[in-house]
Simulated assay, not measured.
Amino acid sequence: MSEKHLVCQGALCKCNFGTTPDTLKVLTQTKHFINDKEGSNKLMATNMDIGASTFEKNTFGPCKMQPIPGGGFKPCQIVVTAWSGFYEKITLQDNNGKALLEDSKATCPIGGPDCITIINHGQTAEVSSQNVENAHKEVLMELFPFVDLNKYIRKSDIIDS
Rank of each mutant, 00 (worst) to 15 (best):
S2M: 08
N96Q: 09
P75G: 08
A135G: 05
T59P: 01
K137Q: 15
G18H: 06
P145E: 13
I158R: 14
G111A: 05
Q77I: 12
C115W: 03
N150R: 10
N134V: 01
A45V: 02
L43S: 06
Y152G: 09
G61M: 13
T59K: 11
G85I: 04
T117Y: 09
L43P: 00
V147Q: 03
T107K: 04
G111I: 08
F73K: 04
N47G: 06
V79G: 02
Q9Y: 03
P21T: 15
N58D: 06
N150M: 11
L140F: 05
Y152Q: 08
T81L: 11
V127A: 14
S40G: 10
L101M: 12
D94G: 05
E126L: 11
E38T: 14
K155E: 14
T107Y: 02
F33P: 01
V139W: 09
S53G: 10
N150H: 12
H121E: 06
P67Q: 11
N150K: 00
A52G: 12
P21Y: 11
K57M: 13
Q130N: 13
G71A: 15
N35Q: 06
K4P: 01
A82W: 06
P113V: 14
N120V: 00
P145T: 10
D49P: 05
K42I: 04
T107G: 06
T23V: 15
A11V: 08
N95T: 06
V7T: 04
T81Q: 03
K14C: 12
N16F: 08
E56L: 15
F17E: 04
K31L: 13
C63L: 07
N16L: 14
D114S: 06
C15S: 06
Q66G: 04
I50W: 07
Q123M: 15
H32A: 12
S161R: 13
S2C: 03
W83M: 08
G39I: 09
I50L: 07
E142C: 12
G18I: 07
M65K: 15
P62A: 14
K37S: 08
L27W: 03
G10N: 05
D148M: 07
T107H: 04
G10M: 09
S129P: 01
K31C: 12
S161M: 05
L12R: 15
A125E: 04
Y152R: 06
S129N: 11
D103S: 12
F55W: 05
K137Y: 07
F146W: 07
P67I: 04
C115Q: 09
D157R: 10
K25I: 14
V132Y: 05
H5T: 00
S104M: 01
I119L: 14
D49G: 05
N16R: 14
N47A: 05
Q77Y: 12
G72D: 11
T30F: 03
G18M: 10
T117E: 10
E3Y: 14
E133F: 05
N134T: 08
K137S: 02
V79S: 00
G51Q: 02
E56D: 00
K31E: 05
Q77C: 13
F86R: 10
G51V: 09
K4A: 11
W83C: 01
S128V: 02
L143M: 14
F55P: 00
N47W: 04
L92T: 00
L24Y: 00
D114T: 08
K31S: 15
E142F: 12
T91K: 15
G112F: 10
N95I: 07
L43C: 08
Q66A: 02
N131T: 10
F144M: 13
